[in-house]
Amino acid sequence: MKSLLPFALMALVAVVAFYAFPYNLAFLTRVVITMILVLSLDLLIGVTGIDTLGQAALYGTGAYAAGLFAVHVWADPVAGLLVGGLAGAVVAFVSGLLLMRTHGLTLLMLTIAVAEVFQELANKLDWLTGGADGLGGITMNPVFGTWQFDFIGQTGYIYAVCVLFIVTAILKVVIGSPFGLSLRGIKDSPARMRAIGTPVGRRRVAVYTLAGAVAGIAGALAAQSTALVSLSVYDFQVSAEAMIMLILGGTGRLWGALIGTAVFMAVHEVAASVDPFNWLFIIGFLVLAVVYAVPRGLIGLPEEIRRMVGRLK
């Protein structure tokens, strides 16, 4: 039952936010979608120790897949999510066969390159993707044929929050499973995992595929809720900011991903509206402060404070 407490808290925050910021639902929806993206990154970086800067490749492909599916096949939102997730998983699996053989700087560079290649491809295939103009003309059917997407974004927000809950719950179960334990083992010592008979390479491809599905779902949600997919879904910035949000919140426990995303995007929203360059100052110092002062992220802050207080006594 203790494990349900964070979910109750999450629900509470989601409801409060809904009533407290009725005119910012589009922004709140973006936050929720980004949370799903950052969760997928936590599965890789935080749980398995796979450092990647290419989450945009998976996210962007999910977005385009869901957008194209809605335009050309069927505008059902839930079916679109599944298509987006599947597309993300397929891209992750295929690219993962190469990527997951590498580590360190090489892996970082290769993941960046894969996202860049996808961006160029999407640009090149403009007859399909709309190129630099973006993919428009997405109009979604009501969710489950019942709830119409409205202009203020109430349906969109509630729909995204529900997806976030489901994704978080599934990832919680996965992390607690034998598979999840083996991922944590890989993070601590891939060499030892091999020595107990785990095919580490295949396991890494498997978790990359799973993360691809989650990132693809996030992309699909973004496509559905903004009714537009642009080339910027593949931006390096998408991957880099997701990483910053994750480390800011704290890795490996999912809740950190949620907290980091919320704090980062809230600070961004406020600071960037004041002055975009001050925003870069603020985020720069924020990032340095996290690395130097709270390396375990905001989620480790209570413990850090407790330890400092303990030392004072």
């Binding site: 360190g104 360059f277 340095l288 690395v291």
Partner: peptide
């Protein structure tokens, strides 16, 4: 530190350089 904090810290330094020059 690990590679991840290094990536992060140096991205932070990059942001500050950009902000300072602009």
């Amino acid at each position: 530190m690990g590679e991840l904090p290094q990536v992060l810290a140096t991205i932070g330094i990059t942001f500050i350089m950009i902000a300072a020059i602009s």
